[in-house]
Design a protein around this nucleic acid. Structure first.
Lengths: 245, 245
DNA sequence: CGGTTGGTTGATGCAAGTCAACTACGGTGG
DNA sequence: CCACCGTAGTTGACTTGCATCAACCAACCG
């Protein structure tokens, strides 16, 4: 079941979108029998949304902006981040095609969003989003699932930041990212974000990321055909390192 | 507006419960005008809940248990934590009187809960909780607020774990905890949890917590009349350290 | 009392940060 | 087409903040 993407038939996004739908389905089967996903509902109100295009590093919304829109990433990658007054940055999470962001019951947004690569997204005004939710119970339960799943992700990440060492964090990140992407081409993983982005996501420095990638490569767990591409050669060893759950 | 606590009129819990209600109100005003809080709704179905009592370190539920109950802490403190296979522990968060935990749209619980001090809680079966939610729109929007607020807390904590140094983490923790408790007696803060619990919450060791407490004391930011009690003497300096937001 | 547990403090080691040099691209303009 | 530049990644040398290990102290309790 393909996701209707409004006016966006971009081929690069479609495979990833399938993955996202599958994941949403896995999450939703708890309280709802209804098979429509959050993405499906968004496609229904595509008319009231606007299609936006961003270049790398362009700001999509700022921290403490009012939460007036809900966004869906159509293609490209986005990072959610928070800055400290002195410039330290924390990348809360990466948002991939098909993902929804900006939905939170808080007057202000707790983080800012920036495009990692060229990105296209749909922006839906909260008002029209809420109107649809008011009359639609299945959508509401999807929203609970959406928030729950975000919460699980966040708690999982807290665990990584609180307990794991550098190499374990990198292994967790690679596995998690591969899982989200769906490991499309064989097992070659394309990392749209730079080392610094990964570092700020894992609470490390870019140098350490570089060193840990080299370490995993020397230990034969991964191959690095080019800077942005990584092949997960030994999933078993990587999983043992990441000690998932 | 006091919270009806079912059969529990414990004086130690009531002040803290007030605080929690106020906090919930602050969060909810986004999409609902209705003043009833999650705690209020829980008190309505107090009959279908069971009152449970736990001793320090007793397990309330385990990681990967099915999520069959929603809990409300009546008195005492609870810690939510996750363990790694090798025994490393991460304290996701501390749950205080009035707080609700265990509500998540996931078949299995992502963390286990243990009593920090003697604790009394109410357990509500998910089934009867869901039944009430089905017929009650205001409750549903409270649930969205509940999850949103948990998500905000989690993202805030990710920020602390990812970016801050030991002393900053401790300052953030003390301020945050003081804020949740409501700084009941003047400004003396009673910490129900031990150093190791704080350490596992902040991604540090018990020794480091001890050292940082000493450091803050020597710098005149706090007083430590007894091991469990801390007086925040210089809120300005502490906030500067924590660099809130 | 002595034993146990939780907290503090000190000495030392190490993982990751910092600083800096070097390399590899990818684009731009001559 | 190559020369130039700017940016991103890698690697090495050194520093440091926190962990580790261990001794000590103070409360609490049978």
């Amino acid at each position: 079941m393909p996701v209707a993407m409004g006016a966006e038939p971009a081929k690069s996004a479609s495979t990833a979108a399938y993955t996202r739908v599958d994941k949403a389905k896995r999450t939703q089967n708890v309280i709802a029998a209804e098979p429509l996903t959050l993405a499906d509902y968004l496609s229904r109100i595509a008319d009231s949304g606007s299609r936006l295009r961003f270049s790398p590093n362009e700001v999509i919304f700022n921290q403490d902006d009012p939460s007036e829109y809900v966004y869906q990433v159509i293609s490209g990658t986005v990072r959610l981040c928070r800055y400290m007054p002195d410039g330290r940055r924390c990348v809360i999470e990466f948002i991939l095609p098909g993902d929804v962001m900006g939905f939170i019951e808080s007057p202000d947004l707790p983080a800012c969003a920036e495009a990692v690569s060229d990105a296209v997204l749909m922006a839906f005004p909260r008002s029209c989003f809420d109107r649809l939710a008011k009359s639609n119970e299945a959508l509401r339960s999807q929203l609970l699932c959406h928030l729950s799943s975000n919460l699980l992700t966040a708690q999982n990440h807290m665990f990584i930041l609180g307990c794991q060492k550098a190499k374990e964090r990198l292994a967790s990140f690679l596995l998690n990212f591969a899982d989200r992407i769906g490991l499309v081409y064989g097992d070659r993983l394309d990392l749209p974000m730079g080392r610094q982005d990964i570092a700020d996501h894992l609470g490390l420095t870019a140098e350490t990321i570089s060193r840990m990638i080299s370490a995993l490569r020397h230990e034969g767990m991964i191959l690095v055909p080019s800077g942005q591409q990584i092949v997960l050669r030994d999933l078993v060893a990587l999983r043992a390192l990441a000690a998932e759950s």
